[in-house]
Design a protein around this nucleic acid. Structure first.
Lengths: 246, 246
DNA sequence: ACAAAAGTGTTGTTTGTACACCCATGC
DNA sequence: GCATGGGTGTACAAACAACACTTTTGT
């Protein structure tokens, strides 16, 4: 094989690490943010500032190198916790990115995507490594320039989120424990980018058996709205045979 | 495939290969096979016999090591061509597998899945490296014991195939250029594992605008059936923003 | 009382499903 | 002619979408 010759040359001991294919793990973390200027909540995600080359100073997805003795899933959870302190309510592999020129050195990035409920976002003080200077939360619809191919990655993650919202109960992963139907509907409206009929929406989730009504109500505005909680027996999404199920 | 193993060892004399995380690419290739014993065609896939440890002698998915200067997609296409001579009609990334213990040495496998039309399978003579001893096609429903975690991988690929058959025109990737509606229906029946009403099936694909009727007919049995061809303007499946579209 | 959101009812359309039936060919 | 799969029509049910209407609160 042609490749053999080339590999041997490149892999010679005298070369630097740039001759090695390294595996990184990154995560696109979605949450919702109430924007006073907007009617509906807005999809937001955290970015970390790069403190070294390449792309020093630019924003990038949180992530890190895969350790020798940890699985991809573990690496995603670990790097997430280290960089943002987040333990997400939903975490799923998104895609493996491996274009040759996506980084100056050869890096394969296994990218995950996650949903976090607003109440799962730790306060800055609770995260030892938190560095307010170098972490920011941005509106997914108005991304700053990102390092590497991370803009493309976020776009793909958004596509998956919208897609999955159409056929699964994934939006619950963005809401706190108890919520009103209007709040749930607003989540879907934010993700799908269109208005939904409140009456029909109510019936749909009603029939889906995914919600458990509580006897508590959200008061304050007009007629109090019943609070619901998510039925834990129903999976947020069918993830196929990879995930062990009861 | 084997070459790289050796190279890595040579390239890092002070370390064993088990200290390096290597990236492999494998592909689950689906095609259809007419089984005289069965009413409908059967989903089949090619396996290659392992000729060295680990799992020497067992069947495994075709694949190989990722080259330093090729993208993941290119590696999938290349290893596919090298081991089986196949250029598939549909090729998509499936999942990245990275459990620590899935191989004695640390290997991350980026797995693809592919569909090939029966007429795209090259004859053995046309593939220089073809080794009849060490390549076999098996019924996806009756897998022999496989090396590594490949059984799990095939199960996941089958789940994805069935899933995708439900909401896309993916089944066309398994048929030759011209086909009857009954043949197309049989493909869906094989994938989904249940019978479909011929009348309703006809109307569904009719309305979907994905088929172009020809003026040719398949004769031989009873009333001749019109041959259709696939409308190239319609994508087999929506693959999101990762794939450039017109 | 009134505005506004919560929640219910009604109606028409679209989609899916079951199945009866005619059509064209090989035997 | 008759069996068989190709192809059409129809009737019912479920899901979806539009929107009028009632209920319950804050002000």
């Amino acid at each position: 094989m042609v490749t053999m010759t080339r590999t041997v040359v490149l892999a010679a001991p005298s070369e630097q690490s740039s001759d090695v294919t390294r595996v990184a793990v990154s995560t696109v973390i979605f949450t919702l943010r109430r924007d006073p200027a907007q009617e509906n909540p807005v999809i937001a995600l955290p970015l970390v500032r790069r403190t070294r080359d390449p792309y020093e100073g630019l924003w990038a997805l949180p992530g890190g190198w895969l350790d020798q003795d940890e699985s991809l899933d573990d690496a995603a959870a670990r790097t997430l916790a280290e960089t943002t302190g987040i333990a997400p309510s939903y975490l799923e592999q998104l895609y493996a990115f491996g274009a040759v020129d996506r980084s100056p050195t050869r890096v394969i990035s296994i990218v995950y995507w996650a949903l976090v409920r607003p109440d799962e976002i730790p306060s800055h003080e609770a995260v030892p490594a938190y560095d307010a200077e170098n972490v920011t939360w941005v509106d997914a619809a108005h991304l700053p320039p990102l390092a590497f191919d991370h803009t493309e990655i976020v776009d793909y993650a958004l596509w998956r989120l919208r897609n999955k919202a159409g056929y699964s109960r994934i939006a619950h992963g963005l809401l706190p424990d108890e919520f009103t139907l209007a709040e749930l509907r607003e989540v879907y409206e934010s993700i799908l980018g269109r208005r939904l009929d409140p009456a029909n929406f109510r019936r749909q989730v009603d029939n889906s058996e995914t919600l458990i009504p509580t006897d508590r109500f959200r008061t304050g505005s007009h007629r109090p709205a019943r609070l619901y909680r998510y039925n834990q027996d129903v999976e947020l999404a069918d993830r196929g045979p990879l995930i062990a199920r009861p």
